[in-house]
Amino acid sequence: MAYLSDQEWTAIALSLRIASVATLVALPFGVFVAWLLARTRFPGQSLLDGLAHLPLVLPPVVTGYILLLLFGRRGPIGMFLFDTFGVTLAFRWTGAALACGIMGFPLLVRAIRLSMESVDRRLEETASTLGASRFWVFLTVTLPLAMPGVVAGLLLCFAKALGEFGATITFVSNIPGETQTISSAIYSYTQTPGGDAGALRLTAISVIVALAALIGSEWLSRRAGRRVQGL
């Protein structure tokens, strides 16, 4: 399309890629943490709960800075990853995905946990009398019945990841073609004389993407809801 410059297209594609990867990688962890919080009791549970929710309450810049300290080239985890696997996250799109995934994580966990808590425990008991171990109860009863919450959590996490700005720009900066997302491209435009038109174009794109995600998840979640009600 001629309306958008190459750099804008790159930012859009990169945003979608970062948000998708962030959400998909966060999903298994989110499901596991939600299950730990909803269905088990162990010492340190409130600490885990707090840690999972921390990115929601911390200023995003702080989260980004912590990531930089931990995952930067000289950070303990960053150094380990580079030395063992040759992987660098700081100032790369993969680092942006990490930052976005962590920022979206609390929303993902929260939605899944709430819907897991509303799953009828008696159905889980019933499954266990039929021979299902804890793992199979989770896989065949708890998770399918919590599916509307999983869908909602995925959407929230994806939306958060798509719009994430503060942690991302702090951790991986704003490098066109590598880490420049829609949000940071808009920010760059607003800092440039005559950038209004570009900022407006990307804003329109943001609205369209967000609406499409909302409608899609609404549809998915209605389907999942019908299934859960046994219809």
């Binding site: 008696r122 159905l123 859960v228 009600q229």
Partner: peptide
């Protein structure tokens, strides 16, 4: 067999 059946709804 429970009083209320408890079929798995999904």
């Amino acid at each position: 067999v429970f009083q209320d059946g408890r079929l798995l709804p999904h």
